[in-house]
Simulated assay, not measured.
Amino acid sequence: MSIVKDVPVPSYYRKLASYFPAHEMKHVRQLQALVEDVPYYGLLETREYLVLYGDFSDFLFIDYLLVNRDQRGSGVGSRLLKQLQSRHVPILLEVEPVDPNDVDTEKRRRFYERNGFAMAHGVQYEREDRHGEPYTMDLLYWSPSQKISDDRVLRMMTTVCHRIHNYRAMQFYDRIPAQPEEVLSLVK
Rank of each mutant, 00 (worst) to 15 (best):
K15P: 00
K15A: 15
A17I: 05
A17D: 08
Y19H: 12
Y19C: 07
F20R: 05
P21V: 06
A22M: 05
H23I: 05
H23M: 13
H23A: 10
E24I: 07
E24V: 09
M25E: 04
M25K: 04
K26V: 02
K26F: 12
H27N: 15
H27G: 08
H27F: 11
V28Y: 04
V28A: 11
V28K: 03
R29Q: 10
R29P: 00
R29H: 06
Q30I: 06
Q30Y: 07
Q30R: 09
L31C: 06
L31D: 01
L31N: 06
L31E: 03
L31T: 00
Q32D: 13
Q32N: 11
Q32H: 08
Q32T: 15
Q32C: 11
A33I: 07
L34F: 03
L34W: 00
V35Y: 01
V35S: 02
V35F: 01
E36T: 11
E36K: 12
E36D: 13
D37K: 10
V38T: 08
V38F: 00
P39W: 02
P39I: 03
Y40A: 00
Y41M: 00
Y41F: 15
G42E: 01
G42I: 02
G42S: 04
L43F: 06
L43K: 15
L43G: 03
L44I: 13
L44V: 11
L44K: 13
L44C: 07
T46S: 15
T46K: 06
T46V: 05
R47Y: 00
E48W: 01
E48V: 03
E48G: 10
E48D: 14
E48P: 02
Y49G: 10
Y49W: 01
Y49E: 11
L50A: 12
L50G: 08
L50Y: 06
V51C: 12
V51T: 09
V51W: 01
L52F: 01
L52H: 03
Y53F: 15
Y53N: 02
Y53H: 07
G54S: 07
D55E: 14
D55Q: 08
F56K: 02
D58A: 05
F59I: 04
F59K: 06
F59D: 03
F59A: 08
F59C: 12
F59R: 04
L60S: 01
L60I: 07
L60K: 00
L60W: 00
F61A: 00
I62V: 15
I62N: 00
I62W: 01
D63A: 06
D63N: 13
L65C: 12
L65R: 03
L65M: 15
L65F: 09
L66T: 05
L66R: 08
V67F: 05
V67W: 01
V67P: 06
V67I: 14
N68A: 15
N68L: 12
N68V: 08
R69L: 10
R69M: 09
R69Q: 10
D70R: 08
D70C: 06
D70L: 10
Q71M: 14
Q71H: 14
G73V: 13
G73N: 12
G73H: 13
G73K: 08
S74A: 15
G75W: 06
V76N: 04
V76S: 09
G77C: 13
G77M: 05
S78D: 09
S78Y: 04
S78M: 07
S78C: 12
R79P: 04
R79E: 14
R79K: 13
L80Q: 07
L80E: 03
L80N: 09
L80D: 04
L80Y: 07
L81D: 07
K82S: 15
Q83V: 03
Q83G: 11
L84A: 09
